[in-house]
Every structure is written in structure tokens, then in C-alpha cells.
Amino acid sequence: MIDEKDLAIHPLVPESIQHNNLTLSQLRNLSASLFGVAAGILGLESYPGFIFYLVGTLLVSALVYLFPAKREPKRYFQGGLWELIEKDVLNGLMSFVLTWTLFFGLVSA
């Protein structure tokens, strides 16, 4: 929890926060769909598929941490590294399942 006093001394610009979140969520959505395509083509079923998604998401988080965030996630996200990792993971899961199912069906038909 951020202190009210700290917030007044180091003010946050809501537009910038929104922009950062938007960038991250677009990246997540796109990568989730592509992971779904990959998992479907690889023919992964049940747990391996979900684990594939988790590993892929972690990989994307690591890349975001290294390159756009330049190893300083606190500068870009209020909650620091954890917020960078867990944001939009569940949202992406939906699109992952969609493309996974589609390509799994297409390949195994």
C-alpha cells in the first residue's frame, strides 16, 4: 500500500499508468493467442497445454522485464515485478484456450 504522503511527493500520472498497462495487455493478448496456436499444432493435451501457457507467459514476462522495463519494473508499474508478471494472465488464458482448441481440432481432424 502506498502512503498518501508519498503519493503527493512523488505523484503518478494516471495516463502514463494506463498507457503502460495497455501496452502490457496488448502484448499479453497477442502472445497468448500465438501460444494457443503453437500448443494446438504441437498437439498438447490437458496439463501439458496449460503448463505450456504458463511457461510461455513467464518467458514473455522475463523478456518484458529485461527489455522494455530495463530491469526496473518499479519505474513502470506500481506493484513492481509481481504486477508485471500476473497482469492479464487470466484474460490471456481465454484467448489461449480459444486458439488452442481451434488449432488442436484443425490438426487432429
Partner: peptide, 12 residues
């Protein structure tokens, strides 16, 4: 599945 998963596509 479409109902839940298409949000990201609409975003694009």
C-alpha cells in the same frame, strides 16, 4: 469459447 476468448481479437 468464442464468447469468452474473442476479447483480445476485438482489442486488435
Amino acid at each position: 469459447l468464442n464468447l469468452f476468448g474473442l476479447q483480445s481479437i476485438f482489442t486488435f
